[in-house]
Design a protein around this nucleic acid. Sequence first.
RNA 1: UGGGGUAUGGUGUAAUUGGCAGCACGAGUGAUUCUGGUUCACUUAGUCAAGGUUCGAGUCCUUGUACCCCAACCA
Length: 565
Amino acid sequence: MTSPETAVPASDFVRDTVRRDNEQGTYGGRVQTRFPPEPNGYLHIGHAKAITVDFGVAEDFDGTCKLRFDDTNPQTEDEEYVASIIEDIRWLGYTPDEIVYASDYFEQLYAWAEQLVERGLAYVDEQDSETISAQRGGYGQPGIESPFRDTAPEENLRKLRAMRAGEFPDGSRVLRARIDMQHENMQLRDPIMYRIRRGHHHRTGDAWCLYPTYDWAHGQSDALEGVTHSLCTLEFESHRPLYNWFLQQLPLPGDTPKQLEFARLELTHTVTSKRRLAKLVHDGLVDGWDDPRMPTISGLRRRGYPAAAIRDFCRYVGVNRTNSRPGIELLESFVRRELNRTAQRRMAVIRPLKLVITNWPTRPDGSPVVEYFAVVNNPENEADGTREVAFSGELYIEREDFAEVPPPKYFRLSPGREVRLRGAYFVTATEVVKDEDGTVTEVRCTYDPQTRGGTAADGRKVKSTMHWVSAQHAVDATAVLYDRLFSAEAPGAATGEPLDDLNTDSREVLTGCKVEAALADTAPGQVVQFERLGYFAHDPRTPMLFHRTVGLRDEWAAIQKRQGK
RNA sequence: UGGGGUAUGGUGUAAUUGGCAGCACGAGUGAUUCUGGUUCACUUAGUCAAGGUUCGAGUCCUUGUACCCCAACCA
């Protein structure tokens, strides 16, 4: 448990409702939820909240939670998405009690639809979608009844069967529930139950040309599965009366499920619209759904976000009915909290600057002496042990760790100043080598043999400890630094259309980085901390490619900012 | 325009249901530190507005205000 228990609310309105239902015996003490994604894209951070709520509530009350694919629209759905969704849920640490599909219920739904038709509660409308939409009326405006509304049940039944038999072209007819065209809630103005849509369905193939809408499929699927609490997001609130209406009309096998809505998760600097994410992928603005810049679960995973951090974050923001947009910093703080505990430390320089020790000893054959130092892998976790790091007279340090003219409060290396090379020796810069442009290409220094291991025999202190790699032993690597995908607050990121707030230059690729040899042993997918540079995830597919997961909290950057730099 | 929701520091979220407005992120100050990391201490800042009931209101009442959702054969 890495979450700050003190700050996590003990309950929320969803859990309160479930608890009350249990106390009153509403569902015989049974708790069943479901996570119902449409397989038309990859899961993103917003879904992670829904997942932690759906699975978390079931877990807390010793109930069950199934994964149900809401595959009612063949035009947008694909097996690729089914597979990725299952993988992402498992990676997040949840195991569905069962994996089911709304398409499993197509036959039952159709049978029920015929029953509604027979009872005069549904009818076939032959008008086109524009006409139907116009007749629906507007907010505060009355609706107009369709001329097909009072067709006799036998006639409707005949038409519905002909629809199913494929006798009509796409979009030519729909089945509508016969409710109330004057209802103040638009959802109840004779909503569509079935539309004709010939498309190859990823599971039922070409068996159907008739597909149920969300409203006709969802509550009925819940009921068929025995769901007790159907948790969804706030925008479905106005659908609840319709959800209940359908259930009231049907001979349900068991209890009537209860729909509860909560606010969806949004984040600053983050797009949480599947439509817009799909556009980024299809327009080629990112390298795929798992591009580390993407806020998808798979993107975050590749970027090195630990599942535990995502879970803790979701739990922490809570379940509520208030639309909000937490700062991305909050998520990142959970990532750092987790990684600080678990990530091994390594020395690496992503913008190398050569550091030559002029008084470093040589062997009789003229080659430089090599020393090895044992370094702790993770000071937060002794069990991670130590590793040997080679040290010699030619090193690389981080370019920004040297300043020819040090600004105020700058503690790192500069001419005449002594610093510690972590775990090795104290060195003092003596000389700067530049190219014709005046760029520093090399720094020369002397080391003090009396400071072996990083401790001065005379007890003197230095203000800075720097990371380094031995030039002779270093391994070349590539590091990718990510900015946030969006440069601004991404107004309308959830609902808006434009992508013009996208920061397409949000990635800086640094080749020629130098990392210590021990890093070559890092497992693909593993996240390590490059000391002082941040947490980096070893790409699962490409050797020696590292994605920066998050940076460290950087006090020096804050100082520079304050100095107005 | 009708209906349905939601309002607590800069951000997110609590408050035993009418009883000291707390926690976290962020920001700031200081201490510790062989990572300007971590850790520790302190500081900062809030009940949408106006009335009302009450010994006492974030919580109850009234009237406003702001924001979100609903008129796909999407989910």
